[in-house]
């Protein structure tokens, strides 16, 4: 799966979770850019993404992700 494909799949998950069909995330998107992306939502998001891609993030990764791009990189590495 290419970075673009991963991002596309992530975008669908984000749209669904934040209940916003117009949401368009990029690799530069950070939590502050998305309404409702707080620390609680981050946990649900992580578990949803793990499920969707059938991967597990490590504790350090969950804590250290700075933007969507970093999430994409980790997923790309695992697939």
């Amino acid at each position: 799966m290419s970075r673009e494909e991963i991002l596309e799949k992530l975008n669908e998950i984000f749209q669904d979770m934040f209940d916003d069909e117009d949401l368009e995330i990029t690799e530069e998107t950070v939590a502050d850019d998305v309404e409702g992306w707080d620390s609680l939502m981050h946990i649900s998001l992580i578990e949803e993404v793990e499920d969707a891609f059938d991967i597990r993030f490590t504790m350090v990764e969950v804590n250290g992700m700075q933007n969507v791009g970093e999430m994409v990189s980790i997923i790309a590495e695992r697939m």
Partner: peptide, 16 residues
């Protein structure tokens, strides 16, 4: 359960 979620967020049960 997911052990990291307990360490990160004190969540003993996974959202699943």
């Amino acid at each position: 359960k997911d052990a990291k979620m307990y360490y990160l967020a004190k969540m003993p049960l996974s959202t699943h």
